[in-house]
Amino acid sequence: MSEDNYITFDKYLNNELSDLELTSFKEQLKSDIDFKQEFEIYKALEASLSSKFENEEEEKALKTTLSKLGSKYLKPENTIKKKGKLISLFSNKQFMVAASIALLIGFFIFNNGEPVYSDFSSHNSLELVVRSDNSETIIKAQEAFNSKNYEVALEQLTVLSETNKNDAEIELYKGICFLELNNYVEADQIFDAISSGKSTFVHTASWYKALSMLKQEQFEACKYVLQTIPESADEYKQAKKLLKKL
């Protein structure tokens, strides 16, 4: 097929054909099967590729959301599996050394009595980028939180929570900032509100409430909260570990 035909296709799709050209184009579509087939393919290609390239960023953002949700909802056994693999990487000798170090650390902790907040306070990083609104604030909040700059993170999260009322995830991370900054009253208020709510962060909030109790050295209250975390929760293993030490 001649090159001119493709130029005609392109012009047609851009509404650039003159009346005369348009009439003859339509005529040819009717009479020339090959011409018609190529035009159909050309049109479909144009639609498919332009949609694909136009939405590349959006697709990436969607994938981020989906992977996050996937690991949250579908892989409870994942952490266990990974730990299993890690051990098998050690050779026997290395394993013995590692094990004895672990034993020593264990002794150290037990001999020192009560467990401490910092043993348990590794937070999941904040990942809100997938949301479409307020992107600059989100990025700032995230960067600050993930680099443990809790004061700045709290400021940004507070801005965010004003436009996203009742967003449990934002609230939760605000709570963590308060906890890190030793503002226990505010922190506990937030954790209590979330853990008595209906979001997907109910048990995470309970876990943090327990950590707050631990940090305030209210060990009985801490134990009590830990016992409310069910076996199905992601935090159950950690909760059990902490309970043992209390």
């Binding site: 639609a47 498919s48 949609s51 694909k52 939405n55 697709e59 969607l62 994938k63 989906l66 992977s67 996937g70 690991s71 579908l74 892989k75 056994e77 994942n78």
Partner: peptide, 22 residues
């Protein structure tokens, strides 16, 4: 395994997204 399942689910959803978009 569940990793496979997660991939299958994600790929399916992304396909539906493109179909809806285009």
């Amino acid at each position: 395994n569940s990793d496979d399942a997660q991939d299958i689910i994600q790929e399916t959803l992304v396909t539906i997204y493109h179909q809806a978009k285009e």
